[in-house]
Design a protein around this nucleic acid. Structure first.
Lengths: 353, 353
DNA sequence: TTGAAAGCGCTAACAG
DNA sequence: CTGTTAGCGCTTTCAA
């Protein structure tokens, strides 16, 4: 029970000390669970703490310590389920270790990414979980390196010579998508992506292409990549289909791409899977309630988050050694949006989920 | 240009002071833009700052100031577009004012909400933007009140006697949905909601019902409310339809409800709008690319965020007066999921995008 | 086992 | 206009 009324100033360690009749140093020790305090005194401290409703000021406390118990997280956006859950996970994990997470969105801008990082450096964060906008070679990673910050890179990265990385095994997942689509009989497939995310998009594309060519050497794979932004993709795609191209399946390498593809299908009046099949990288809750349900590659958010945090704290605690690159396996959920080419209505058998 | 190499210790204000040949106090003044410093000295400080790559430590600085330039944000979740954009907006707004945003997810738990708040209080945040799990009367708001914290309540709130509130005008939006559905000829409508969000769900329900009854006194409105969680809603809904109920339209009062409704439609093989119409509170990107596109009420995220921050800073700066309750107008986007009852295939005319 | 003293990095009050 | 002094709230030697 807090006995103080809505107070002006919160009680400080000295208030506790004087009420308990000990020194601030002793209170500090008790609060940190040091065992060399006489039980009698400890009890007096506990009583005073309870009476005053005292709580340690974590910032003041960090001020004196070596490292601050804060970790930073920088994501390209907060609006998607993927990064939203990522932040939720990271926050929980940080909290478990007695750290506070400060999260910021780079809003897909490398410039902003670097500014945020500089601000986090000002905050003397103990470490940073950075999901770079583009890849591991951006200015933000450079800044971290230059300033000797400790951090881990996630998501749109493959491997780095300065930082540990944790990401989804895009290549393997894409290979599996290739296997699934080819096994359904698709022989002309369009792959849609965003070029500037280099690292991962490349891995996804290569993983898909390599496996596909290995299984069916004369498979036809078209690629529509938008270099910079999502919007151009819309017209590139429109042009592609306007030329009369008629692949039997589309594999979108990222979530917004899947939305763009769907909206292009709408425009042309095509339905999945009767007119064309679709698989997207990145799952979302709505994909299983729409009709048809959209097949998707599910990234293991929890695994990525927990590995990232593990690795990060290992570095924070001073563990050395060369940076490691972790890849976490994805799940591929084939849903109704995938059928057999030419299957037509009510014949696209073999759908799971 | 920073001339230091990857340093062990960041330069402090004293390093700058001694290099510039002035006192720390003078450096502090220069950094804060105080104009009463002799230009010559100011220049020496700037030079030293640049040479050393010095940046003020915001935490140390706050330590001495009255208030810390940190504001906290607590959202029920980060996974949805709504709260994701909310955080993005809040972060940007806080940053504009030189504040850092510390965000946390209560994960739909009032217990956790209160814990987070206590931690933020420990941090001596200048203010809090709280989107309560349930409503303005939860334990978290009580905690804030009790501890004299300054804050603003958003989203699932209507009005409070201790804090300013900012939320979407759910009632007005729901009235508009009623008007739209009735004008299309619907006379039997199911409303689906989650009871425990009391404040807003009640407003949405009442807004809808009042307007509907006013327009068509003998309209039939069924209500399926799940008290606690989303999952029970699924079976309640199943039972409802199993009884043979056959409304011509469904209005879901919250996003997850819309997903549940859609998935129930799937299960029964019903298509919108031919078999039944659907409108959901809360918009999402995917809703305009699915087939049919889902009609939705769009909450004005930016307006809510910017008003919340305005109001909050006004309080932080000591402005008095009774708490105000703001309601921001929503947009209702009627899309293909809404047609006329009995319209059947290709006759659900009058759809707008 | 304890507490006095010395700060962490910064700012504010007040002499000079 | 500038520097000295005195802290913010806490932790950490280190001597007692």
């Amino acid at each position: 029970m807090a006995h103080r009324q809505a107070q002006q100033r919160r009680p400080s360690i000295h208030d506790v000390a004087s009420r308990a009749g000990v020194s601030a140093a002793t209170v500090s020790k008790v609060m940190q669970g040091v065992t060399t305090v006489r039980p009698e005194n400890a009890q007096r401290v506990y009583d005073a703490v309870e009476f005053l409703g005292y709580r340690v000021d974590p910032l003041a406390s960090d001020m004196r310590r070596a490292k601050r118990r804060i970790i930073g997280a920088i994501m390209p956006e907060f609006e998607s389920e993927f990064f939203g859950s990522m932040i939720t996970e990271l926050e929980g994990l940080a909290e478990q270790r007695g750290y506070t997470l400060v999260a910021a969105s780079s809003r897909e801008s490398e410039a902003r990414e670097k500014e945020i990082l500089a601000r986090m450096h000002d905050w003397r964060v103990a470490g940073v979980v950075l999901a770079p906008v583009r890849n591991e070679h951006g200015p933000a990673a450079g800044f971290m390196k230059l300033n000797g910050m400790t951090g881990v890179l996630i998501d749109r990265v493959l491997a780095d010579d300065a930082f540990d990385t944790v990401s989804a095994d895009s290549a393997a997942a894409s290979a599996e998508v290739a296997r699934e689509l080819l096994s359904k009989g698709h022989r002309h497939i369009l792959v849609v992506g965003l070029g500037h995310q280099a690292a991962t998009v490349r891995a996804r594309l290569d993983g898909f292409r390599t496996k596909a060519l290995q299984l069916v050497p004369d498979i036809r794979i078209d690629v529509v990549l938008s270099e910079s932004d999502v919007e151009p993709l819309r017209s590139l795609l429109r042009d592609y289909f306007a030329k009369g191209e008629r692949p039997t399946a589309v594999y979108s390498l990222f979530l917004k791409g899947t939305l763009v593809v769907l909206s292009e299908f709408r425009r042309r009046g095509w339905h999945c899977p009767d007119d064309i099949s679709l698989v997207g990288f990145d799952d979302a809750e709505w994909m299983q309630v729409t009709w048809p349900a959209i097949a998707a590659v599910v990234q293991p958010v929890r695994e990525i988050a927990s590995n990232a945090v593990d690795v990060l704290f290992r570095r924070i605690e001073g563990e050395g050694g060369p940076p490691k690159a972790r890849l976490e396996p994805c799940k591929v959920l084939m849903r109704e949006s995938v059928g057999s080419p030419g299957g037509g209505p009510h014949s696209g058998g073999g759908n799971r989920q």
